[in-house]
Design a binder for these strands. Structure first.
Lengths: 189, 189
DNA sequence: GTCTATAGCACGATAGAC
DNA sequence: GTCTATCGTGCTATAGAC
C-alpha cells in the first residue's frame, strides 16, 4: 500500500468539489451523502473517514462553491474585469439558468437560516468577501463605499435569487435588467 | 351529526393557517404533515380529505402566508400606511427576528426553485402583488414606475433574506439600514 | 370526516471485512 | 481508506374502523 496522506487529501477534495456543485444546485436536503460520494467516485462508507457529518461537509462546501463560482467568473471575464462586466455576468440569463456559474450566496439564501451556526458563519464569510470585491475601486470614503457595496450586493444576490424563484420569464428578464442598472447607476455606462 | 360542509371549510382553513405559519418559518422539508395537522388540532389521517398532497398544500400556503403577513403589517401600521412606514416596518429588526411578521417572499426564496411549477406560480403571483403594492403612488410613467418598484422589491425582499442568513448582527443591522435608505431614496425623508 | 395503524421508502450514521 | 451490509429513524401516503 504505497498510498500516503496525499491520496486522502485528493479524495477529500473530490468529495468537496462534488458536494459544492450538488448542494449549490439542489440545496442541503435534496442531496444525499450517497449522491455526493457517487459523484466523487466512491461509496457511502468512505465518507466518514473525511467528514464527521453531513452538516460539516455542507459548511465547508459553501466556501468551495464560492471559489468555484469566482474562478468561473474570472475565466469568463478574461483580463477586463471591470465592475460593469462583472455585474453583467452575474446578473445574466446564463447565471439564472445555472448552466455555468452558480453563486451559493444567491442559491442558498433561504437554506442557510435553517442550519447551525457553523453554516451561517461560512455563508457570512463568503458574503463579506463578495461585498469587499464589489467595494474595490469605489468611493474614497471607506464607510460610504462599504454602504454602497452592500446595496449593490443585495441587488445582485437578491435579484438573482428572486429571478430564479419566479416562473415568469419576461418579468425575470426585466428584473435582471433593472438590477443591472441599479448596480451600475452612477458608474460609467 | 349536524356537521355540514361549513365544518369541512373550517377545518381546511385551520390546516391552511397552520401550514402557512410553519412552512414560512421552517421551509417545506422541515415541516411534516403530522406537525401541520397537530397544530390545526387534528391527526395525520384527516389531511387527505382536504388536500391531495403536501406539495398542493404548500402551493396554497404561500398565498395564505402572504395575506397573513399583509394583515399583520396593516395592523401594525394603523391608518398611516405611507411607503416610508411600510418600508421601515418591512426592513426592521423585528421582521428579521421573525417575532411577528414573516414574509414568505423573503423566507422561501431558495425553497421555491426546488419545487414544481404550481409552487413557483403561487410565489410569482404573490411577488407581483408585492411589486404592485409598492408601485402605488409612484411615478406617473407606468413603465418607469414599475421598474422602480421592482428595484425596491429586490432591496426589500433580498435585503431581508440576506440579513436573516448572515450571523453577524452588526452587519445585518447596517445592511437593513442601507436597504431602507436605498428604497426611500428620492422620497420625502 | 376523523381516527389509528401500517405500508413503503429514503436517508444518516455505524460496524466490520479487506 | 474504502468497501458492503445494516440499524434506526423519519417521512408521505394509503387502508380500514367508526
Amino acid at each position: 500500500m504505497p498510498w500516503g496522506p496525499e491520496q486522502k487529501q485528493q479524495s477529500r477534495e473530490r468529495i468537496l468539489n462534488s458536494a459544492a456543485k450538488l448542494f449549490t444546485q439542489h440545496g442541503f436536503d435534496h442531496v444525499g451523502i450517497n449522491e455526493v460520494m457517487a459523484d466523487a467516485g466512491m461509496t457511502r462508507g468512505a465518507f466518514y473517514a473525511h467528514f464527521s457529518s453531513k452538516a460539516e461537509l455542507y459548511a465547508e462546501s459553501i466556501a468551495t462553491a464560492a471559489k468555484a463560482a469566482h474562478l468561473k467568473a474570472i475565466e469568463a471575464l478574461g483580463s477586463d474585469a471591470s465592475l460593469q462586466r462583472v455585474v453583467k455576468g452575474y446578473l445574466s440569463e446564463e447565471h439564472r439558468s445555472g448552466a455555468q456559474i452558480n453563486c451559493p450566496l444567491a442559491l442558498l439564501i433561504t437554506d442557510i437560516g435553517q442550519r447551525d451556526d457553523k453554516v451561517r458563519e461560512a455563508y457570512t464569510r463568503v458574503f463579506k468577501g463578495f461585498v469587499n470585491l464589489i467595494a474595490q475601486g469605489g468611493d474614497a470614503d471607506a464607510d460610504e463605499a462599504h454602504r454602497q457595496a452592500l446595496q449593490k450586493a443585495v441587488l445582485m444576490v437578491g435579484g438573482m435569487a428572486i429571478s430564479r424563484a419566479i416562473n415568469d420569464e419576461e418579468l425575470a428578464a426585466t428584473l435582471l435588467d433593472v438590477c443591472r442598472n441599479g448596480v451600475l447607476d452612477g458608474q460609467e455606462a
